[in-house]
Every structure is written in structure tokens, then in C-alpha cells.
Computed example of a mutant assay.
Amino acid sequence: MGLLAFLKTQFVLHLLVGFVFVVSGLVINFVQLCTLALWPVSKQLYRRLNCRLAYSLWSQLVMLLEWWSCTECTLFTDQATVERFGKEHAVIILNHNFEIDFLCGWTMCERFGVLGSSKVLAKKELLYVPLIGWTWYFLEIVFCKRKWEEDRDTVVEGLRRLSDYPEYMWFLLYCEGTRFTETKHRVSMEVAAAKGLPVLKYHLLPRTKGFTTAVKCLRGTVAAVYDVTLNFRGNKNPSLLGILYGKKYEADMCVRRFPLEDIPLDEKEAAQWLHKLYQEKDALQEIYNQKGMFPGEQFKPARRPWTLLNFLSWATILLSPLFSFVLGVFASGSPLLILTFLGFVGAASFGVRRLIGVTEIEKGSSYGNQEFKKKE
């Protein structure tokens, strides 16, 4: 193990990275709060500023993937599709099998200039997660309780507000509704069999309401749907903790572009279109498992330096006073002050670990274990 690889495994460095992310995030959230005063004056200026503020936070996580772990991301698609990336509003459909699937999506957003303006249909619980949920609130992210009777009006209103968004946005949908587990898959396929739908091997049965509503509300704004099927070479199952420890992964993403006008206007027909899409995604995963790659031409978009420069800037601003403070604490010789500081370090460590825990599969929600049994 080289020196750099060894340093990446050290808990102290993880704490420092977490410190920079948390404190910079709180600063960014405070600035976002102040920008609310701009909304009545210029809604579009408010949005542009918040896109850049969000970029400054999210790009720190992308930096961990691109520069800390040096994970590589390869696209399997065609040249015409690549040329449209970052130049149109789009709905992104991504399979939800891995702890860092969102991070792989974000790195593609970053490389094509839409990270700050990326959107997602998120579960309501995330709104209350410090930094993540707070930042999303200022970005006009659409939150839902995953109970359609209660969510319908909120989702429709939130989506329609985005019709005049000034920056190109990618709106991410996890149509499966929850992350894949064997238990959820078994329950999901029982529902598929009961409804006469083909059994999926690598995906959960897609929940169509969010997709059909998004397509309906964003029609005229969004130009296309990008279907993204993600997998990792070597049958790896990466985690955010693995990224933090500097483990390198190789992500492959098969991207297919569907013009929005090709998706049926009728809700039932659009739902059938989505079910067919997931059957195709399942076939793509089968090809990947057999051949170790997706069909299509390979593209490796170059990582950009901005994520690294952004993190180094925040680290320079925040770590210098931290080091001075720590030296002052230990130089004081006060047992009470030192113990208080160590207690703070322990609390900070716990907080960072809880934030990471949001992404972990084994700590994911139970949504899907029983909800698939309910009629959409």
C-alpha cells in the first residue's frame, strides 16, 4: 500500500473531510436562506444563485468519487446522445441497486454542467436531513410521502413550478421507488405475477405514477427521457464508506435517449411504456452479466478540475482556523477544555457517520417490502 492509499484510510483525514463538508454546508445553507429575499424581486436570479451554491456543496461529494477514490465512469451510448448532454432539460430514469448510484449520476451531471441544477423526486424524510434536505429545499426539489393520494397535488404543483427553470436541468427518477434488495424484489415480483406483468430479474416493478405525472407536467419543458442502466465491473457492490477509504471502482452506464414526443400522452399507455422500458433494462443487465459490458459505443467524459478546486478552497478557508483552535486547546493544558474538545470530535464523527448511513442499503427504508402489495 502506497503512502497516499494509506492516508486515505485514516480516520483523522475522514474527520477533516467531513468537517469541511458539514461546515461549508452550513455556511451555504445560511447564504441560501438569505437569498430568499431575492425571490419576490427576481425568481430567476434566486434560482441561478442557488444552483451555484448547491454546486459548491454537491461537488465535494463528486470530488470524493472522482479525485479521492479515482473511480472511473464509462458511458455506453451513441455520439448523437452525448452531444445533447447538458444542452436540454431531461428526465433521467436510473436503476436503484447501489449505495452510490446517486453519486455516479451526479458525476455525469458535473461533467456535463448540470450538477447544480439537477433535480430529484425525493422522499419527504430527506427534507429533514441536515445539509442534504435543507439544500434541496432551496433548490425547489419535489418531496413526496410516497402515498399517491397525499402526494398528487404536491408533486403536480412542484413539477409545474419548474416549467420556467432558467438552467438546463436533469430530473432524476428512481421509478422503482426504493433501493433493490432481495426481499423487496421477491415481494415486487409477486405483485408483477398477480398483475400479469413479466418478471424482472434485476429490477423491482416500476411504480408508474411518478413517471407519468412527471412526463405530463414537464411536457413542453423537458425534451427527452434518458434511460440510464448502471452496473460495476467485477461484480462490485460499492459503498460511500468504500469511496471514503479511497477504493477505486469502475462504473458502466448504458444511456438511451427517448424524445418526449415518443412517450404516449395517455397515462395508461405511458405506464405500459415504462413497464416495457424496465423489461429492456433487465435485458441490458443480463447482457452485462454475461459479457461484462453494455452494448454501444464507449465514451469516457473527462473529469473537470472544478470539484477539486472547490474542495481545496473550502479546506483552505476552514481548516486553517481549525488547526489554530486545536493547538490552542492543547496548549492551554486545561483537562476540561481538552475533554470538551474530544467530546465534540466524537459527536462530529457520529454525525458524519449518520449522514453516510443515509445511503446504506441495510439501513434503507422498509418501503417496498409491503407497499408493493398495495394497488398504485
Rank of each mutant, 00 (worst) to 15 (best):
238 P>R: 09
238 P>L: 01
238 P>F: 10
238 P>I: 02
240 L>D: 01
240 L>S: 11
241 L>I: 13
245 Y>T: 12
248 K>N: 02
249 Y>M: 03
250 E>I: 04
250 E>F: 12
251 A>Q: 07
252 D>T: 10
253 M>T: 06
256 R>S: 14
257 R>C: 14
257 R>V: 13
259 P>V: 09
260 L>K: 12
263 I>G: 07
263 I>F: 04
263 I>E: 12
264 P>S: 12
265 L>A: 12
265 L>G: 15
266 D>T: 03
268 K>V: 12
269 E>W: 11
273 W>D: 06
275 H>D: 06
277 L>H: 10
277 L>E: 12
278 Y>E: 10
279 Q>A: 13
279 Q>Y: 05
280 E>G: 06
282 D>L: 09
284 L>Y: 07
284 L>C: 05
288 Y>S: 03
290 Q>M: 03
290 Q>E: 06
292 G>E: 08
293 M>S: 13
294 F>E: 04
294 F>G: 08
294 F>R: 09
295 P>V: 02
298 Q>E: 14
300 K>L: 13
303 R>D: 05
304 R>Q: 14
305 P>S: 00
306 W>Y: 13
307 T>H: 03
307 T>N: 11
307 T>D: 12
311 F>S: 09
313 S>W: 13
315 A>H: 05
316 T>C: 11
316 T>Q: 00
316 T>K: 09
317 I>H: 05
318 L>Y: 04
319 L>A: 03
320 S>N: 04
320 S>E: 08
321 P>W: 07
321 P>T: 10
324 S>G: 02
327 L>K: 14
327 L>R: 11
328 G>F: 06
328 G>S: 12
330 F>Q: 00
331 A>D: 13
332 S>N: 04
333 G>V: 11
333 G>L: 03
334 S>H: 08
334 S>T: 11
334 S>W: 11
334 S>I: 02
337 L>K: 12
338 I>L: 03
338 I>V: 14
338 I>A: 11
339 L>N: 08
339 L>Y: 14
339 L>G: 01
340 T>P: 07
341 F>S: 10
342 L>A: 08
342 L>H: 08
343 G>E: 00
343 G>Q: 01
344 F>Y: 14
345 V>D: 03
348 A>V: 00
352 V>T: 04
352 V>P: 00
352 V>A: 15
355 L>A: 14
356 I>K: 00
358 V>S: 05
358 V>N: 09
359 T>H: 00
360 E>D: 06
361 I>M: 02
361 I>S: 06
361 I>R: 02
366 S>L: 04
366 S>Y: 00
367 Y>N: 00
369 N>W: 04
369 N>S: 00
370 Q>I: 06
370 Q>S: 02
